[in-house]
Simulated assay, not measured.
Amino acid sequence: MPQPVNPFADIAPITRADALAYVVLERRDVATQARFLHDFGFTAVEHSGPNVYFRGFGEQPYCVELIPSERDAFVGFGLVAVESGDLDRLGAAHGLAPAANSKPGGGRVLRLVDPNGYRVDLVHGFTPAKAHVPRSAIDNGNTPWAKKRVNDGVRAPLGPSPVRGLGHLVIQTPLFEQTVRWYMTNFGYLPSDLLQTASGVTGLGFFRFNRGDKPADHHALAIAFGPTPAILHISTETIDTDAVGQGQNYLRAQGWRHFWGIGRHILGSQIFDYWKDPAGDEWEHYADGDVMTADYPVGFHAFDRAGLWAWGDDLPASMRPAGPLPEAAPPVVREMVDALLAPPRPWLD
């Protein structure tokens, strides 16, 4: 592999978003999707109108908006601005004006469209929801060197994983560099880790919010090169590893379709568990993820699937390229597909 180079080091941001607020989905069967979200750990929000809203236990007024539709689709997502002037500054750069926000929480919203046609909102001034922490994290683990837990056991309740809110999104795009530059320019994302092929082409990037010396999650957005625009998964943060495990038990008991996990990622370090919703979209529970300040340097890694998780089962077949590629496929695409099809561990061939 050539000397790694950050192809996005020249980007000057217009604004710096601070948090992932919500996702917007169209659904043909809103009732079944709502039941899944409840079992996944969200709670319904009272609001008038045909659309349905769900929140976590954090301060975001809502995390998921369901729009009744004749199709199942990912519409887009919302980001939280640091200050009100960010909406005006970003709006001026695009010739747009912010508007009053009619969604739960109110405030103002500026609506953009990314290179893939996804709606991206920047919101500010909403009324925070009242947080309701369901339980404390279990952090009294015993090790061979320290026995914190004496005369006591670990008894995490069986039930939906309590989700604080949304953690990150992973989107696929055939317009990889254009999409990365669009998000970094408009919202100030910083690359945490870039996965590059043997010839030095970046095919997957993990991007965090720029909060200066305040830690931010390892990634709030991941962007992957792929043949068509798609949402690859929607991720939610829960309390601890036991919440991930008991949440899996509960979702299995309710009959939902398990997808991948439990395991631990390498880039981000999260304990993860993935599920499929009724429309086929992926949802992740995670706990114990890495956080970085703005001065954390960009990491460079081989573009393969071995680096995506440390332990647990291999990626499901549907997360890998279909292959084989047609002869006319560009060399860089062939390079990426071959890298992802290579067995990630000697015992996983």
Rank of each mutant, 00 (worst) to 15 (best):
V333A: 04
V123D: 15
G141M: 02
Q172K: 15
V113Y: 08
Y183S: 03
L25Y: 09
G280N: 10
I266Y: 07
D29Q: 07
V244F: 00
T202Q: 04
D338K: 03
G268H: 05
L90Q: 11
A81G: 07
D121F: 13
D281Y: 15
P144A: 13
N101L: 09
W182F: 15
Y286E: 09
Y118D: 08
W145F: 14
W309L: 00
A131K: 15
D88L: 15
A97E: 12
P160L: 07
F126C: 12
W347P: 01
E335T: 02
R208M: 05
P330L: 04
P324R: 10
D277G: 13
D139E: 11
A19P: 04
V180I: 14
N6G: 10
P321I: 10
E83D: 10
P134A: 03
T32W: 03
V64E: 10
S69W: 08
E26N: 11
G78R: 06
W260L: 09
D295F: 09
Y296D: 01
K103Q: 12
R27C: 14
H233V: 09
V244D: 05
D193A: 13
A97S: 12
L112P: 00
D10A: 13
H94W: 01
A243W: 03
P2H: 14
A146N: 12
P227Q: 12
L112T: 01
A243Q: 03
L232W: 02
F176Q: 04
L267M: 11
S161G: 03
P61L: 08
G255Q: 09
A339R: 00
A12F: 10
D193E: 15
N51V: 00
F272M: 03
D314V: 11
G106T: 02
P346C: 07
I223P: 03
E284R: 05
W309K: 00
I14W: 15
N151C: 07
R55Q: 13
Y62M: 08
D72P: 00
V52D: 06
G203N: 02
A287H: 11
R334D: 05
H168W: 01
V154T: 07
G268P: 08
N151G: 07
G76S: 11
A329L: 05
R305H: 15
A243S: 15
G91A: 10
T127M: 06
H265A: 12
W260F: 07
L87G: 10
P128V: 06
H168C: 10
G107F: 00
W182V: 09
P104Q: 07
M336C: 12
T238L: 09
R135F: 15
D277R: 02
F176N: 05
I231T: 04
A97I: 08
E59Q: 11
A322F: 06
W256E: 08
F272C: 04
P229I: 04
G91K: 09
V291P: 00
I11Q: 00
G167N: 13
R135S: 05
G49M: 01
R119A: 14
H265P: 05
H258Q: 13
R108M: 05
E282F: 01
Q60L: 02
I266A: 07
